[in-house]
Computed example of a mutant assay.
Amino acid sequence: MARTSKKGLIMKTAKQLFAEKGYDATGMEEIASNAGVPKSLIYYHFKSKEDLLNAVIKEFVDEYNEILHDSRAEGIEKISVYMEFLKQNRDCARILMSESLKNGSSQTILYQVLAPLMEIDGEQSSDNPKMDHAHWLTEFFTSILPSILFVCYEESWCDYFGISAGQMEEEYFTAYRLTHGAYHEHIHKVSK
């Protein structure tokens, strides 16, 4: 395997283990064993376990940024693309949630997901390139956080309540439109 594919394998394995067991409960030896690589190879690519975690999160945020900059989809269609991305990256969503809930420096790890949205909104808003704090508060607590929680709990919610994933997704999008969508409708009316 080429070095880049070994690095990718290490990151994929770390992401799976961090999501399953938690960052603190996962050791470098376990990552190496599960990836089938020597521990020294992990340290060749990453200075530390924290560096490995940061690489996993950076890869997620970079892909998320690409989705936000893809202008082919608009409105609810764009949200559907975003939700599909989160579902495909459910392990990263779990890592973001679990690490952000800890006290200490990792608490802000989830805010990294807000940065690309702030950047793109600033690019699109020529009359107000720096949105006010209330806007970002609303984006975070009525869109980003609920969407990440949705993908983290989707499977167990369906099992617990005996509903299909399709039904749950439909009900979630209805709730999303009524909350976050209503906020955007309000902003659109106010800005006219």
Rank of each mutant, 00 (worst) to 15 (best):
E185T: 09
F60Q: 04
F141R: 09
Y82A: 13
W157T: 07
L137P: 00
E119L: 15
A182F: 00
K39H: 07
D132L: 08
L68T: 00
K12F: 10
E84R: 15
K192D: 10
V113T: 06
Q107G: 14
E123S: 07
H69S: 02
N54A: 10
D121T: 05
E30V: 09
D62T: 07
L149T: 05
S156W: 01
V61Q: 07
F60H: 05
I10G: 03
G8Y: 02
F161N: 02
A115S: 11
I144E: 01
G162W: 00
S40P: 01
N128T: 05
S48A: 11
I67Y: 02
L101G: 15
P38S: 15
A93E: 01
K130L: 15
A35Q: 12
L110R: 01
S143Q: 10
K7G: 05
L68I: 07
F150K: 05
Y172G: 02
G104S: 06
E74N: 12
I57T: 00
Y183A: 14
E169Q: 14
M11C: 10
Y153D: 01
I187D: 02
E155A: 14
T4L: 15
L145T: 02
E50G: 11
K47E: 13
N54Y: 10
L114S: 06
N89K: 13
K102N: 09
C92V: 07
M83H: 03
H69C: 10
A134D: 11
E66A: 12
D24Q: 14
E20N: 13
D132V: 03
I57R: 01
C158Y: 00
V151Y: 06
G181I: 06
M131V: 03
I67W: 02
Y23D: 04
K130P: 00
V37C: 14
